[in-house]
Structure formats: structure tokens, C-alpha cells
Nucleic acid binder design. Sequence first.
DNA 1: TTGAAAGCGCTAACAT
DNA 2: ATGTTAGCGCTTTCAA
Lengths: 334, 334
Amino acid sequence: MKRLTIKEIAQMAGVSVTAVSFVLNNKPGVSEETRQHVQKIIDETGFKPNLNSKKLLFNKSFNICIMINPNSSPFEDLFYFEITRGILNKSREYGYNITINEPIHAESELPDMVYIGDTDGIIFMQDISDALTEKALACGVPFVVVDSHILSDAVTSINPDYCDAAYTAAHHLLENGHRDIGIITSKVVPGFREQTLAGFTKALAEYGLQPRKEWTDGNVSTEQEAYEAAKLLLDRPDRPGAIVCTVDIFAIGAMHCAKDLGLKLPEELSIVGIDDILLSRYTEPKLTTVGIDKVHIGELAMDLLLKKIKGKKPKSVSLPMELVVRESVKKLDT
Amino acid sequence: MKRLTIKEIAQMAGVSVTAVSFVLNNKPGVSEETRQHVQKIIDETGFKPNLNSKKLLFNKSFNICIMINPNSSPFEDLFYFEITRGILNKSREYGYNITINEPIHAESELPDMVYIGDTDGIIFMQDISDALTEKALACGVPFVVVDSHILSDAVTSINPDYCDAAYTAAHHLLENGHRDIGIITSKVVPGFREQTLAGFTKALAEYGLQPRKEWTDGNVSTEQEAYEAAKLLLDRPDRPGAIVCTVDIFAIGAMHCAKDLGLKLPEELSIVGIDDILLSRYTEPKLTTVGIDKVHIGELAMDLLLKKIKGKKPKSVSLPMELVVRESVKKLDT
DNA sequence: TTGAAAGCGCTAACAT
DNA sequence: ATGTTAGCGCTTTCAA
């Protein structure tokens, strides 16, 4: 069915389109009487102004583009999805549509909508390639990178604080009486190994401890590799009694290994992960881990992006992570 | 930076805007010579026509709205996400943006973008309430329901064929020599219990068997309830040697129960699920299940929706499901 | 306080 | 084959 236009409303009300426009946008310039009269007609007819004309006039698309990684794992997908929920919360508030997109051509090209001006801003989920960053910068569309691990002045990003996360994980073990703590971490993401090791070391230091070289070698990137790394650790005569696994997936690998070695969990080995992926709730025992508020990330991303759209230059933020206590840490009597 | 307009291109080329428009849209009405000349300028300048003016002119938003359930479980989220990937594949082809939305006001209200004409079509993930269906129908925006369990002439939907799925699950057990097969199913979704029971019965019939009343009582809706139902089944002196669980989550509950009862899996009990959720790959043993091609669902949804947008009336489709063989079924010697 | 009209960038009908 | 122009629905400037 044909939709009403502002012109028709003006006719019905016996006023000019200007008057109707003023009423619609709550602007001064009409008498209270006229305003009421026009408003009544608007309410009765349920008239909604056509957004497309505003888009043309203001040269704005009212679209925010979420860019997801086409090769992500289901766990990452879930992570994105929850962040998206946070983004949606804010989108309604701000009157933007949230579109979902994948980079094209082997991940190094932005989707068309960016180039044809059909996007007012971009939220990248996960770090993007340098090529993509360059292109985003070059085309001048405001953007924000979420779940980033890179710090750069050129890009506004939201970074989970993995140093803090590793600190929290280790601290939880220490609080529960553990002193012989190992760590399995990774260098897949730039700086990740250094950051987690720093947090880990800081926590130990607070208890007058230092990381033991043989217990901090773990440097893996898959569940299987974590299994092997755990085996190396647990086969030692002086094996640790607790392990911080800086990614939940590593924790799952380590748990498998411990079970295969006949170790009872958490009685003979305590484990803390980082990320709080879905699986952590289904391991046996359920994994104690350090997670982040994903909905909050999404909301924050929108706040930052909208500031950028308005021409401000918000700074990147580092988000602390929170302990999720489940069953994989044994409390030691001390 | 200011973007070029068709007018400026026309000036640069020394032709009229019409000529440029024709070249842009590959329409006849310009000489080959002019076409080449104009095309050259377009290429050199990288000119892209402003989509907003087309939106206004054609009164089209080029947006497709995906509606997700705000209260979904992580498994459902993952299901949606994969479907979305399929939708994205097609969206690029067809030149639509995919926006993601939640119904508002306690799930019974469509988002604003639908009412202000900022959507050309809607894809509902999961069945929607009658109230929502009415509203979608009333506002005249074409829509498609994905992963539906309701068949109605008024609505175009894509329905997983759960009758076929249960048939496939039971058939796989029968093929592997099992004859004493129970089933745990559910009535949470309308018709689901009947459909799965029908498929189950059909498979048995092909082997000259009939469902045993005591083995088909299971009527549950959560993992915990499935655990209890499995206990009832497995505590019997004449317990089944295999169970079809019509939802993977039920299979996980049943596996827990079997383990608690000291049964070895799959040696002493074979289990087949339906859905192929992420967790199925992580159970011990890994769950054999019947899954659906989610990317295909998404692509199909877009095809159907675009037909509707073009004014056609495509029929709902029922999608067969496929066996995913993992480790939870023992092959019996016969 | 009110209304007329220009203009956002494009397509397409129409005139040449 | 080519150019001129109306018009999509709105906001906003300007004149009354």
C-alpha cells in the first residue's frame, strides 16, 4: 500500500509542509495550536516520515556495519554474537541499523557498502589485517576494532586486558592455597604471551613467588598442542599442582591429558582458563575461568563508534575480565 | 571528502547525465563511442553512484532484516549464526544489506525499521508468535520463517524435516545391527513428538519391528529431564541397547545418566542425537547425530524471500537432514 | 508564525 | 543518439 507523505499530511491539516516538518522534528516555529492540530493528524494516520529522503538529504545511511571474520571458530562466533547483542541494545537507542558483513577477497577487501557510502561506521570483530586497516583508514569511514590485541594510535579499539586476566587466574589459585603453579600460554596473537606472562608473574610476586622456567614453557595454539604441553608438564617428577591455561581451549586439552594420565580433577590438578567459552560449562569438572562481559563490549563499541561519527577522537579502552568460579580448582588446606 | 556526483562526471565527459546514467546501468541509448569515453572517466575517478538517491527514487531500502529471538540459548545462537552465513552469501549476490534485529516489547512487536519502510523483507529465525505473524502480514513486508515447526499457508517457511531425521537416526542404528531401540523425544514444539515418532516407527517397520510402548515414553524438554527419562529406561531389566534422542541435548543427558549407571559407551549403549550442536563434537564418546546444512538454509531463505519481494508466492520447503557419524553407535556383529 | 521553493543525486519520460 | 527536466520525500532557507 502507498504510504502517506508529508505533503498529504500538510494538506489534511491545512498547513504547509514546513509546519508538519517542524512538528515531526520537535522544532520551534509553529504555534502551539498548530502543533497540536498537526500532531493529532499524525497520530491518527500513524504517519511515519520516509527515511530514504533523509538519507539522501543528509547523505547518511543510518547503517553501522559489523565486520566478522569468515574463518572464525564456533566459539568465536558465539563471542561475536553476544557482542552483537550489546551493539543491538545501543543501536535502537541511536537509531542505526546494524548490518552484518564479511570482508571479501581473502579478507583484505571491505564490502561494497563501505565504498558507496552506505555505511556510517564499521565495527570490526577481531583484529584485522594491516591491508584492511589501511583501507578503512583511507576511505575515511569511522571504525572501531573490538577484541583487538593490537595497540595503535591510528585505530580505536577495545582490548580485553589479558594481563589482568592472567593475573586474576593465578591470583585465584594462590588464594586457594596453590603455590606450585604452571602456565600454558600462546604466541598466536601478538603480545598475548608477554601480557599473560606478565600478569601471571605479578600475581606470583605478590606471594613472594617467581615463575619456574620449566613450568612456563607452554607455548601452544591448539587444543591438541595444549594436550602435549600438559603432558610435558605433568610427566615431570616435580609436576605443578595447578595450571593457568590462558585460553579455555587449552584448558580443555590439558584436562584431557590429565585424565589420560589418571589424574583426578580437581583433587590432583587444579586448572583455570581464560575466555569463558560455552564449553567451559560442560567440561567435567566444569571449568573455572576468567571471562569478559560481552554485551558490555558491544555497548561500549557503539558508544565509541558514535563518538567517532560525531567527529570526536575517543581513546582505545582496555577492559578488565572477571573470574567465573566453577569446579576445576581445589581449595587447599593451609 | 566530498564524493563525486553523476553531474560532475557528465561535465567531465562533456555529455549529459542521462548518458552517464545509461552507461552506469548498462542500458542502451548511447553510442558505443560515448559509452567507452564515459566508462573511462568512471574508471579513472572511481565514481560510485550514491545509493541513497536510488533508495529514494525506487522507495527501496536494500535492507533485509533478520529477526533473532532475544531469549535464545547459545546453541540456537550458533545455529542462527551459521544460517546467517548462508544469507550473507546470497546478499552480496543480490545487493542487499543484512541487518540484524530483535523483536521489541516482549517479542510481540516488530522493530521500527519495518514500519518506516526501511526494510524490503524479513527473515525470522525460529517460529514467531501469532501476534508477530499478524503484524508482519498486516504491514505487507515480505517475510520468510526459518527453522519453523508450523505449517501454514499464510506463511512461507523452511522446516527441518524431523520425521526424516528420526527415521535416519533409527535407520542408522538398525543398519548397525541394533534391534532393541528406545526413543526420548519431546512435545515442546508443536508436532515435534508426532513427527519424530512417525519417522522412528517407519524405520522400525522396514525391519519388521514395532516401537515398544515402554521404550517410547520419553517426553522431556531439558537435559535434566532427559537424564531422568534415560534412567527410567536403563533401570529396566529389559533395557534397550540403543536410544534415539531427538535433540542432542537430550542425548547428552542420557549419556550422563548411562555413565552414572556404570554403562560403557558405546559398548553397552548406543545413542544417536538430532541437531548436530557444537557440543556433540565434544562429548565422550563423540555423538553421532543427524544434522542439517545451515548455510544451505540461509541461502534458501534468501532465495525464497527474494522471490516474495518480486511478488511471487513460493511454497514452504521441508529440508531433509543428514547423518553425521561419530562415535556413539556400536556396530553389532550379526 | 507561516508558506514557497530550492535542493540532496539519481532515473526515466520526453523533447530534440 | 543525445540533452533537458520532473520528481522521489524530506529539511531548511528565505520571504512574507
